[in-house]
Computed example of a mutant assay.
Amino acid sequence: MSIAFSVNNNASASNILANLNNVQNEMNNSYQQLSSGNRVNSAANDPAGYAISQQMQQEINGLNQATQNAQNGVSMIQTATGAMNQVESILQTMNTLATEAANGTQNTTDQTNLNKELTALTSQITSINNDTTFNNTSLFTGQTIALQVGAQASQTLGVSFKSLSLASLSISGLNIGSTTGAQAAMTSIQAAIKTLSGYQANAGAVQDRLNYTVSNLQNASENLQNAKATITNTNMAKEYTQFSQEQVLQQVGLSMLGHAQQQPSAILKLLQ
């Protein structure tokens, strides 16, 4: 076995230093994974895993926003149904007034006063129809409002609310100032109540659908988040064990580097 000494090139020290650099890089990676809790912090950590995780994150973000969109849709429907409930209450009162005016015991003055009250109520229906908005959008126009309720562009749900105008409900021009007029008004108002009940049932069905959509979106987002975590999250026990091993290697390497750097001094002693 031969022993070679050189003052121009300390091969042992160079090799140990290279190993120390590798160990330090691994320790830096372990620091990042342990401190962030993520195994994949950039494409350099795992190119394929990073690409997959970003695609998953895109879908997760879309699902979460779609959930918010659907919840906003529920709020919009609640606003509309609240207005329809008010109109229904007014129609019930109008029907009561018409029924009262149709009774033969009412004189002309009584019927005139009842008709004034009914006219005021019809004006309130017009105000509700015209003034009910959600986020500055008029609701009772019959226009379809598209809700984005999925992470994909095609996953939309159209919602529309029919007009509550007097003409649409077939109750314009009512006059209960006479018995005959009051009887005709009863028929029209009762038909309007039936029509409005149908509107409310449709709105309720859409709201139920949106509620189920919200639950499904939340479940899908949670499952996808869990799947992404299996790719990106740090296995803390495994990584900390690896980190401890790297610390030992670093300490041993630094010690060996110190010994290797003493070789030139040994050569000088031979020359003395």
Rank of each mutant, 00 (worst) to 15 (best):
K194S: 15
L249N: 08
F161E: 02
N175F: 11
Q261E: 11
Q245T: 13
N219A: 12
I267K: 04
M76N: 05
S197W: 11
H259Q: 14
G158I: 02
I90Q: 00
L257H: 07
E100H: 14
S6E: 10
K162E: 03
S168L: 04
N202Q: 11
N45A: 07
S188N: 14
N216T: 15
Q143P: 01
M1P: 06
S14W: 07
T137I: 08
G73C: 02
S6W: 13
S244P: 00
M76S: 01
N61H: 12
S170N: 14
M27N: 05
S123Y: 02
Q218S: 13
D208A: 08
L270G: 10
G198I: 03
A205R: 07
L157N: 03
L196E: 05
A237W: 01
M84V: 07
G62V: 06
T109Y: 05
I16R: 06
L139F: 11
I3T: 12
S255H: 04
L118R: 01
N107W: 13
Q218L: 04
E117G: 01
Q263K: 11
N64K: 13
E246Q: 14
G104Y: 05
Q218P: 00
I90H: 01
L91I: 09
Q190K: 12
V159N: 00
Q55L: 02
L164N: 02
V87S: 00
I52L: 09
N107H: 12
A101R: 05
E88T: 05
I145L: 12
